[in-house]
């Protein structure tokens, strides 16, 4: 059985890949047909081939990469600040049950406030600079991470904590060797979710406020009637989203390779 297993697994992997490829091609073909047959006016939905051509053409232009750089810069800085503040705040709040109880209602009230509501304030405070994107990104990502860190800190195994205590570990080393590692899977979930949200908010800020970046380029292409280019940019935004998701998952797998939630996936 052990000898035959890899072969079946390989065949399955192969079937999965090729079926997936068929799915993608089918999607593009459907798009092409819908446009060419005029079900949706090709003026508004150009065929997939035109959109892909436009994407490939814009891959060669400096403006495209400039826009991508602006978007990813806002995304990275925003996510970084949100991660650091969210993790620190999470450990501080989670460390004492008094602070946790006292802040619970405030957190539950502030968290669901949609960050796009801050757009007018961002415009008044910062105008069309990167700071207004950052404000939206940090607000949206911070709560996502904070909540997960709070779950993680609350999930620490009491036996492990008491063992560390009886071995004479101080508060700082307990934080480093017990709380932090056991909260790490939760932190990663939070950061992974926040990464996707941060990208959404980065593009939103550019689309609505008009700070430079991919979203702004899409809005410009739309109002300028460059329809195929707009679809090309939308495809690019989707590809960036896929890359963000894949990178985050890979990072999680690498960092948490010791953790049972990841290990069990590989063993079975």
């Amino acid at each position: 059985m052990a000898g035959r297993r890899p072969a079946t697994a390989q065949r399955q992997q192969w079937a999965k890949r090729s079926l997936g490829l068929v799915g993608v091609l089918g999607f593009l073909l459907m798009w092409q047909c819908v446009s060419l047959t005029g079900v949706i006016n090709p003026q508004f939905l150009p065929p997939a081939s035109a959109a892909i051509t436009a994407l490939v053409v814009s891959l060669g232009t400096l403006e495209f990469w400039e826009a991508v750089r602006e978007t990813m810069l806002a995304w990275g800085i925003g996510l970084g600040i949100a991660a650091v503040t969210g993790i620190v705040a999470g450990f501080v709040i989670g460390s004492s049950s008094f602070i946790r109880k006292a802040t619970h209602s405030t957190i539950e009230f502030l968290r669901p406030i949609p960050s796009v509501g801050l757009i007018p304030i961002a415009v008044i405070l910062f105008g069309v600079k990167i700071e207004s994107s950052l404000m939206l990104i940090i607000y949206a990502a911070f709560w996502q991470i904070l909540i997960q860190v709070l779950y993680g800190v609350a999930d620490v195994d009491m036996v492990a904590d008491n063992t560390a205590r009886s071995f004479g570990l101080g508060p700082v080393s307990r934080l480093r060797y017990v709380t932090f590692p056991s909260a790490l899977p939760f932190i990663f979930t939070g950061v992974r979710l926040a990464a996707a949200i941060a990208l959404i908010l980065a593009i939103t800020a550019e689309l609505i406020i008009g700070s430079p970046g991919l979203g702004h380029a899409i809005a410009l292409a739309q109002s300028g009637g460059a329809v195929a280019e707009m679809y090309g940019l939308v495809l690019a935004a989707g590809l960036i989203g896929v890359m963000v998701n894949l990178t985050m998952r890979l990072l999680e797998k690498k960092t948490l390779s010791w953790h049972s939630s990841i290990r069990s996936e590989i063993v079975i």
Partner: peptide, 28 residues
């Protein structure tokens, strides 16, 4: 088989940040 067929496409569609659909839908 449906899952294998659609998984990569869905993965892409999910990753498209939804706000970019607003200009698209406005056109259509």
């Amino acid at each position: 088989w449906l899952r294998m067929l659609l998984e990569p496409t869905l993965e892409f569609l999910r990753a498209v940040p939804p706000p970019v659909l607003i200009p698209v839908m406005m056109l259509i």
